[in-house]
Amino acid sequence: MATYSTNEFRTGLKVMLDNDPCAILENEFVKPGKGQAFNRVKLRNLKTGRVIERTFKSGDTLEGADVVDQEMQYLYNDGEFWHFMMPDTFEQYSTDSNVVGDARKWLKEQDICSVTLWNNVPLMVSPPNFVLLKVVDTDPGVRGDTSGGGGKPATMETGAVVRVPLFIETGDLLKIDTRTGEYVSRAKE
């Protein structure tokens, strides 16, 4: 893998830090007029999700991390592992709940999601920004109430619980924003 000097640091660059793959979030050049130059760098550890701040002397280098985001189809969960497939090569990848994390509550079989691979091993799974999910359980709908005021919990087919307007019925198909976990609208099959 290539090495990158501070001059090549940019947002999104994937590098190895303390043996973990990280993504650079911010890189600021700081230098007192007569003094040594530094780069203050914010990175996200892609394994833990934690944001760390590090300082480098300008000119220092980091090894690149072999990290790529791949669009994959979510196939199924066998109770222990989650299975994904590359839509073009049909190559399959499986991973456990630590890697799938919170994405699990938005994953519906056949949906396309983003799987981050580190050295060809799944590191992180990101659901699409919007998913269409069916309501499997909610209190009976209040017809005519489209005011959007108030709300009630609804359990979706993936197990996620989303706050929805009062007029939503069991069996409705809903569009959900997975970044906020919020109801967006009703959707048609």
């Binding site: 230098k31 003094g35 040594q36 530094f38």
Partner: peptide
């Protein structure tokens, strides 16, 4: 001086 510069900037 490198340490002082780092403390100064940070």
């Amino acid at each position: 001086d490198a340490l002082l510069d780092a403390l100064l900037t940070h």
